[in-house]
Nucleic acid binder design. Structure first.
Length: 290
DNA sequence: TCTCAGGGGCGAT
DNA sequence: ATCGCCCCTGAG
C-alpha cells in the first residue's frame, strides 16, 4: 500500500457516518474499504504515526489523483474549522468529532444512494446499496479476492423495475430506474459540475424522487457545495433548542438561516451538528429529550 | 403480534 | 400550504 501524509482526517466518522453508504470497516485489519462505479479502495491509518495513511486503489492502482479528490484531502481543514466555530455548541461537536470531513463522492453514486434514503434508516440505505452492488456491480479483483463495485448507471438503467425491487428499495425503485435511465442517456452527470448551485439544485429536483433535502445532500456530498446544509428533522430540533430557531420554519428558511449564521462553509457545520445529534440521540441523552 | 418511525417526496385537495 | 400515502425493515 502507498503511504501518504494526511493529518486530521477521521476515517471512522467520515466514511461510516451519514454521508456515504458504500464504506465498510474491518476491525481486525483496521482497514476501511469503499466502492464506487469506477474504483475500489482501501485506506488505513498508520498505527505508528497517525498523521499518515496507507492506501491503495483498484483496479487502477496508485490513483491518488482520484482518491485525494474523493476524500477532499486538499481542503484547508484548520481554516474551515476556525471558520465555523461560531459558538460553544458547534465547538463541542467539532471537538468530539475531530477530523470529520466532507467527501466528494461520485455524482451518480450519490444520486442512487440518496434516492434510497427517504423514510429509511442509514442502516437500511446501506443495505439497499449493497444489494444493488451484489446484483448489478461489476466484479473486481482486490488483492486476489473477488468483490464488486457500485453498480454502473448504464447497468441500472437497463434493469427491470421488478428486478430492482429485489433490493428492498420499495417505492423508491421507480425513481431509481428513471434516474438511472436519464443519467445514462444524457450528459447531466458531467454538466452539473459546471452549474451554478441554484441551477444544479433545480436540475436535481427535476428528477422524480429528489426534493429539497435529497438535492442538498447530493449537492453537498458529491458536488462540494459547501454553502448548503442538508438538515433533517433532528437537525431542526437542535436548531430550535440551541439556536432559538422557530420550530415551524420552512426548509428553505432554515437553510438560509444556517448559511447566514455559519457562512460559506455551512455544510461542514451542519455535518458536525448532524453527526453529533445522531450520536447523542442514539445514546438517548436526556439533554435533547426535553 | 403489534406498533412505529426511519436522513422525504408526490399528488390530490 | 397541508396531508395521506408510498414499501419495507428493525426496534421496542
Amino acid at each position: 500500500m502507498n503511504r501518504t501524509f494526511l493529518p486530521n482526517y477521521n476515517f471512522e466518522i467520515t466514511l461510516l457516518g451519514g454521508q456515504a453508504f458504500s464504506w465498510d470497516y474491518d476491525p481486525l485489519t483496521e482497514i476501511f474499504t469503499g466502492f464506487t462505479q469506477e474504483n475500489f479502495v482501501k485506506v488505513k491509518r498508520d498505527p505508528k504515526n497517525p498523521d499518515y495513511v496507507f492506501w491503495q486503489t483498484y483496479p487502477e492502482k496508485d490513483n491518488w489523483q482520484w482518491l485525494s479528490g474523493y476524500l477532499r484531502a486538499d481542503v484547508d481543514y484548520e481554516n474551515i474549522i476556525k471558520n465555523i466555530s461560531k459558538d460553544e455548541h458547534i465547538k463541542k461537536a467539532v471537538e468530539h468529532y475531530k477530523g470529520l470531513r466532507l467527501l466528494k463522492q461520485d455524482f451518480r453514486d450519490a444520486v442512487i444512494g440518496y434516492l434510497c434514503s427517504p423514510t429509511k434508516t442509514i442502516v437500511g440505505i446501506r443495505q439497499c446499496v449493497r444489494l444493488m452492488r451484489d446484483r448489478y456491480g461489476e466484479e473486481v479483483i482486490v488483492d486476489g479476492e473477488k468483490t464488486k463495485l457500485f453498480p454502473r448507471i448504464e447497468r441500472l438503467a437497463q434493469a427491470d423495475l421488478a428486478d430492482i425491487l429485489q433490493c428492498k428499495v420499495g417505492f423508491r425503485g421507480q425513481n431509481i430506474k428513471l434516474a438511472a435511465e436519464r443519467l445514462a442517456n444524457s450528459d447531466v452527470s458531467l454538466e452539473i459540475h459546471e452549474m451554478q448551485t441554484d441551477q444544479a439544485l433545480e436540475t436535481l429536483k427535476s428528477f422524480r424522487g429528489i426534493g429539497d433535502k435529497v438535492a442538498d445532500c447530493i449537492a453537498v456530498y458529491s458536488l462540494s457545495r459547501d454553502e448548503l446544509t442538508p438538515f433533517d428533522v433532528w437537525g431542526m430540533r437542535v436548531l430550535q433548542k440551541y439556536y432559538d430557531v422557530d420550530a415551524n420554519i420552512k426548509y428553505d428558511k432554515m437553510r438560509a438561516w444556517v448559511k447566514d449564521y455559519f457562512g460559506d462553509k455551512a455544510s461542514w457545520a451542519g455535518q458536525y451538528l448532524f453527526e453529533y445529534i445522531r450520536l447523542v440521540d442514539s445514546k438517548k441523552n436526556e439533554k435533547f429529550n426535553n
